[in-house]
C-alpha cells in the first residue's frame, strides 16, 4: 500500500530525513519510535505533503501512485490520513461543518454521493460512540480551546468519520489520561480492517499493549536504524535508545 524508498527531506537548510525506506502492506500495523527530534513527525508531514518540507531524494508510492506528486488534498482524498502531533485550531468553524465538508470531499473522490446535514448527523452520532463522546463536541469550533487530550481525541473522531485506508497517528497517545488512552486505542482498533493499514508514532510501549503492531521501527537522525517485531518495543523500554543510536553517525 505504501512504499518509501531512500527518502531524503529538509526544511530550509536543515537536512532532516537521510534515507528512509519502509514498506507498509494492507492489514498491517507499524509502530515508529525514536528519540526527540529524530525526524518522526517530519516523515509523517512529508508523507502528507506539508509545503515547508522539501523532498531532496527518494520516492514514495501509495497504492501504486506517486505520492510525492500529489497535492496534500489529493493524498487525503486517496485515503491518507494524518493525526497531527499538534492539531491546529480553526476558530469560528464548527466541528460538524468542518467534518462534513471534509467527508464530502473524500466521498466525492470515492465516487459516493455527498451527505446532507441530516444524514451526516446520523453518521456522526455513530462515530461519536466510537470515541465515547457526546454530540456537544460537534458544535464547538475545531480544536479551539480544546484541552490537549481533547484535541487528540478529536483527531481520532475525524479518522473515524473519514475512514482512511492509511492512517498515520503522530503521538496521538501523548497527553492522554489513562481512560482516554484506552478509548483512543480501542477506537483505532475498531477502525482496523483487512483493507487498511495504520502507522503509529509513539514514545510509549504502553500504547502498543493496546494497539499491537506487526512491526516496530526505530528512527534516529533521519534513518531507520532498527526494525523488528513487537518485542523490539519492550527491548527499547528496558534499554533506551542509546545502544542503537551510538553506532549511527549524526
Amino acid at each position: 500500500m505504501l512504499e518509501i524508498i531512500n527518502l531524503h527531506a529538509r526544511v530550509g537548510d536543515k537536512q532532516i530525513l537521510n534515507g528512509i525506506s519502509l514498506q507498509v502492506r494492507v492489514g498491517e500495523v507499524h509502530a515508529i519510535m525514536g528519540p526527540n527530534g529524530s525526524g518522526k513527525s517530519t516523515l509523517a508531514q512529508v508523507l502528507a505533503g506539508h509545503p515547508a518540507y522539501e523532498v531532496t531524494a527518494g520516492q514514495a508510492t501509495f497504492q501504486g501512485r506517486d505520492l510525492l506528486d500529489l497535492e496534500p488534498e489529493e493524498r487525503a482524498r486517496a485515503g491518507l490520513f494524518l493525526a497531527f502531533q499538534y492539531p491546529v485550531e480553526i476558530p469560528g468553524v464548527s466541528n460538524a461543518y468542518f467534518l462534513r465538508a471534509a467527508l464530502n470531499e473524500i466521498r466525492k473522490a470515492r465516487g459516493q454521493e455527498e451527505l446532507d446535514p441530516i444524514d451526516f448527523m446520523d453518521l456522526a452520532e455513530e462515530k461519536l460512540k466510537l470515541v465515547e463522546w457526546g454530540p456537544d463536541i460537534l458544535s464547538r469550533a475545531v480544536n479551539a480551546g480544546f484541552s490537549g487530550g481533547e484535541k487528540k481525541r478529536n483527531e481520532i473522531l475525524q479518522m473515524a468519520v473519514l475512514e482512511p485506508t492509511l492512517a498515520i497517528l503522530d503521538e496521538t497517545d501523548s497527553g492522554l489520561d489513562i481512560d482516554a488512552l484506552r478509548i483512543v486505542a480501542e477506537g483505532v482498533n475498531r477502525l482496523r480492517r483487512p483493507d487498511n493499514a495504520t502507522v503509529v508514532v509513539t514514545h510509549y510501549q504502553r500504547l502498543l499493549n493496546y494497539i499491537v503492531p506487526d512491526f516496530v521501527h526505530v528512527i534516529a537522525a533521519g534513518r531507520i536504524v532498527r526494525s523488528g517485531g513487537r518485542e523490539l518495543a519492550l527491548e527499547l523500554e528496558a534499554k533506551g535508545y542509546e545502544w542503537l543510536t551510538e553506532a549511527v553517525p549524526a
Binding site: 506539508h50 515547508a52 496534500p72 488534498e73 482524498r77 494524518l82 491546529v88 473519514l162
Partner: peptide, 16 residues
Amino acid sequence: IGEDQIFYLKQRGLNT
C-alpha cells in the same frame, strides 16, 4: 492566516 491552518484543512481533503 496560518500555513498550518491551511495545511490541516488540506490534509482533510479541502483544496486551498
